[in-house]
Computed example of a mutant assay.
Amino acid sequence: MRIGVYPGTFDPITRGHMDIIRRGAKLCDRLVIGVTTNPSKSPMFTVEERMAMVTRETQGIAGELVIVSFDSLLMDFAERQGASMIIRGLRAVADFEYEYQMAGMNQQLNDRIETVFLMADVSLQPIASRLVKEIAMYGGAIGKFVSAEVEVKVAARVEKIGRKGS
């Protein structure tokens, strides 16, 4: 069985993430979506809230999808999942430089797990969770970047924590 891991913070899950999930699910028998916390990022949502969003958003996608939270080295997590590949999305040259370095480090940690890069759909390349949150915090419309359900969740969270520029 070919198992792939698609890791991310998914804070919030975007149309870009969904594109990579749909396409990544075709490359393996089981796709494990690893929801993690990145210490360099300030999450808007808890891990549990992000897992619930990912679970809801991925319903109906063909293939075996498993949503799991983790707080460890990616390669240790991938090994525990029995993965043979890590799936990563690329949007721009800046992404490539970072991902290339990470893939090299991950290969040094575990050379039995390959990193597979998927180019984001051209129409989705500018989407980044960080920018979605920033737009929402300043009262901008984010419906082009996330599903209607995620848009409602983000709006509710912004309302709770307070909008900037008001």
Score class of each variant (00 low, 15 high):
98 Y>P: 07
83 A>H: 11
80 R>A: 11
81 Q>R: 14
98 Y>I: 14
79 E>H: 10
100 Y>M: 13
96 F>Q: 08
83 A>D: 14
108 Q>S: 14
77 F>K: 05
91 R>K: 12
81 Q>P: 14
74 L>M: 02
88 R>L: 07
81 Q>Y: 11
92 A>Y: 10
89 G>Q: 02
93 V>G: 06
89 G>D: 03
107 Q>N: 07
92 A>E: 15
78 A>M: 08
108 Q>K: 12
93 V>D: 10
94 A>H: 12
75 M>I: 02
85 M>C: 12
81 Q>M: 15
77 F>S: 00
99 E>Y: 01
102 M>S: 06
83 A>L: 10
108 Q>L: 12
103 A>T: 07
79 E>Y: 09
96 F>I: 11
88 R>E: 05
89 G>H: 02
84 S>N: 15
80 R>M: 12
89 G>W: 09
93 V>H: 11
77 F>V: 00
73 L>H: 04
105 M>E: 04
95 D>E: 09
97 E>W: 04
107 Q>V: 05
108 Q>V: 06
75 M>H: 00
106 N>F: 00
95 D>C: 02
102 M>K: 06
98 Y>G: 06
76 D>E: 12
98 Y>N: 13
105 M>K: 01
104 G>I: 01
81 Q>S: 14
97 E>Q: 11
86 I>N: 04
98 Y>D: 14
98 Y>M: 12
73 L>T: 05
107 Q>A: 07
88 R>G: 04
107 Q>T: 09
77 F>P: 02
104 G>N: 12
100 Y>Q: 13
100 Y>I: 09
83 A>W: 11
93 V>R: 13
80 R>I: 07
106 N>T: 00
87 I>E: 04
92 A>F: 12
92 A>C: 15
79 E>I: 04
89 G>L: 03
80 R>H: 10
90 L>V: 11
78 A>K: 06
108 Q>R: 15
93 V>S: 10
84 S>R: 15
81 Q>L: 10
75 M>G: 00
87 I>G: 08
79 E>M: 08
93 V>Q: 09
99 E>P: 10
